[in-house]
Design a protein around this nucleic acid. Sequence first.
RNA 1: GGCCUGGUGGCAGAGUGGUCAUGCAGCGGCCUGCAAAGCCGUGUACCUCGGUUCGACUCCGGGCCAGGCCUCCA
Length: 462
Amino acid sequence: MTLRIYNDLHRRKEEFEPLEPGRVRMYVCGMTVYDYCHLGHARVVVVFDVVYRYLKARGHEVTYVRNITDIDDKIIQRANEQGIPFHELTKKFIDAMHEDFDALGVERPTLEPRATGHLEEIIRMIQALIDKGHAYQAENGDVYYDVRSFPGYGRLSGKSIDDLEAGARVEPGEGKRDPLDFALWKAAKPGEPAWDSPWGKGRPGWHIECSAMSTSALGDTFDIHGGGADLTFPHHENEIAQSEGATGHPFVRYWMHNGFVRVKEEKMSKSLGNFFTIREILEHYRPEEVRYFILTSHYRSPLNYDEEHLVNARKALDRLYTALRGLPRAEPGEADQYVEAFNAAMDDDFNTPEALAVLFELVREINRVRPENEKKAARMGAELKRLGGILGILQEEPEAWLKGTPSGSEGLTDEQIEALIQQRLEARKAKNWAEADRIRDELKAQGIVLEDSPQGTTWRRE
RNA sequence: GGCCUGGUGGCAGAGUGGUCAUGCAGCGGCCUGCAAAGCCGUGUACCUCGGUUCGACUCCGGGCCAGGCCUCCA
């Protein structure tokens, strides 16, 4: 069985073979930390978290690097607006980002480099580009990449320099030789944070940060580079030009881009203002519901945000957890055909919707087997939980999940519920069905669902 | 304008040249004091017009529609 990944560089699925067998080097473009993360950011980190987990589950040793852009125009602007030093602003949002991602159950990457911690590498790379004739310093002090000096420019995004040229414009005072040239180093303006360099005080451009951080952490050539589809051009195109221009080696073997989160058929983005932050959503929905929702569509497809879908995610997770509820502890087993189907789905370019479908098929089998053979069901349940772990779901205690509330909601306490159930039990013993049903209806009105079984009555929150 | 995706049942969302997705919702049955949960069963789904084929939702071409990139954006 081989893993196939859709490689954006060639626009087709390709068999995945890491440069070094058993070892995968992966880089994902992380956040620019000037605001809270929204659902679009959540999608990137959840998607690549699953890629990371699955590669590990497949037995690879994975070095996963996800950077933090902690210096750029927007950060400076926002810090100035608030009258605080830029690093104070970035610290606040880096902390918030970690809170949000931790809440979503996203594993921390192996390394999380920050641009401001890699000025040396950045400067060295820019110098190499100048030395090799790929970059030049303009009269305004900025250093630009000479796009026409790199023959492969446009290969990833499928654009030709000449087509791009048509719509491009040079802003006054930029001093570019060609409108498509982009800044590697921006000369310091008054009041801006600045670092010393051979070209005077200034700061790095956005694109060069990722080239420098990725190659310094993973080497000139590495296996997977990921990010949102909006980064394909120009960011990733520029990264290729920079890294290959500077090192002379191929940069990335497999390029992966996830699709956008949409709101009413439009891309969710800061500029459109139609975004929902992770923390807003987590006020009303549980992290696992958000995560499940993200995984219900394939990572390259668009994902339409709608609260109804989050509600649906909870119902689906309820079914999964219900199958696990009350099963004795056991070692995973008895479910080979489901494990195979799950792996086949994941091997096919990380097809999480199909992998989830397999989980539901396994659930049906567990529910079927359970009455006759609880031990077998328990082993299958353990397997279900293990597979869920690869997707980052189903790791809660089933009982806790089913009795849990979305944060923020209020109602009866567990003790009050148990007391009412006890009362109802008395009524049922006396065959006072009217009273028993009254209590059940009362609880139902509060969002509590009762389930009677020969073993007793259980309850859950809707 | 250039380039790139995609249009699947009530909703969401996979997938395949000729039997099944899956979840939610619906309907019938079993189970239950009645329910719930669970199990079993159930739905003339594949934008449109042509073409290829014994056969296409699946391949090819046109059209229509939606979204994206071409400027900071995950």
